[in-house]
């Protein structure tokens, strides 16, 4: 009976994995199949021949190399700024208890409820007033902090016992040293989890770069892929899926590298006093 239930669990997990991986498999399969097999009748699991011309078009026409460098600078720039702003903010909201931080925490929670599209136009006007539209700064600065990041990291810091921080203070450590020497190492899984979220979100972000970027030199990966999705002339699916494979690869690698920290951060780890 126990063996049967274990087998059922394994089958269910395998099924879930297969369902999750199928779109990736189909993306890769379409990217290497000849164009006339993209929508051929029935399901052909393996292309009759390998055609890599979609990768060539994605790389050259879509200028994916340059777009990925822009995407990398944008994503890492945003992440760096978010960590600089969110971690101290999360620390204050978690461990400094007064009326101001209570109000600030309420604002964070309200901020979580505001859809990002609502702030899009004010942000666009803002970056134009600041003269940073159509620049890498215009891609990065509007996202220099994140209410989600503040909240997620705060929750992680909340699990650090006050006694530990009191002991650090008794040893003469100020807020900065407590933050850098005690809080950040313990909250690292939460910070890593947020980092993965942030990188995913901004690497894949389409709407803001679409609004903020005018120069071909500043196109991010999702903008570069849009060249193959023209409603007027139809989609170039082999190039589109090839581009998607190229653009997704760094994210998959990043996730595999940060997987342990990500799961740890999301599951939360209590430290007992």
């Amino acid at each position: 009976m126990r063996i049967l239930s274990r087998a059922a669990v394994i089958v269910a997990i395998c099924g879930a994995v297969a369902v999750s991986l199928f779109p990736f498999y189909w993306m890769v399969r379409t990217s290497v199949a000849p164009a006339d097999e993209t929508f051929s009748q029935g399901i052909s699991w393996v292309p009759t021949r390998i055609d890599l011309s979609g990768y060539g078009r994605a790389w050259t026409s879509g200028e994916l190399g340059r777009a990925m460098v822009v995407g990398l600078v944008q994503t890492l720039g945003i992440l760096a700024l978010q960590l600089v702003t969110c971690v101290p903010a999360a620390y204050v909201l978690a461990k400094v208890r007064n009326r101001a931080t209570g109000v600030a925490l309420t604002m964070v929670l309200v901020g979580l409820l505001v859809p990002s599209q609502v702030t899009l136009i004010p942000l666009f006007v803002g970056v134009n007033v600041l003269g940073i539209a159509d620049s890498i700064s215009g891609l990065i600065l509007p996202f220099c902090t994140s209410t989600f990041g503040i909240y997620l990291i705060r929750q992680q810091i909340m699990s650090i016992p006050d006694a530990l921080l009191d002991a650090a203070r008794a040893d003469g450590l100020g807020h900065v040293r407590r933050l850098t020497s005690v809080v950040i190492p313990i909250a690292a899984p939460g910070i890593a989890a947020f980092s993965v979220f942030s990188v995913f979100a901004h690497w894949n972000e389409y709407l803001w770069p679409l609004l903020a970027v005018r120069s071909a030199e500043l196109r991010t990966p999702p903008l570069a892929l849009a060249a193959f999705q023209q409603a007027d002339v139809g989609y170039d699916y082999p190039a589109l899926t090839a581009g998607a494979v190229i653009v997704t690869a760094p994210i998959v690698v990043l996730f595999l590298l940060a997987q342990r920290q990500f799961v740890h951060g999301m599951s939360g780890t209590e430290i007992t006093e």
Binding site: T85, C86, A89, A104, M107, V108, G111, V114, T119, I121, P122, L123, F124, V125, G126, P142, C144, T145, S146, T147, I150
Partner: peptide
Amino acid sequence: SLLLAGCG
């Protein structure tokens, strides 16, 4: 951070 996150 909060202002930058939500306002313009």
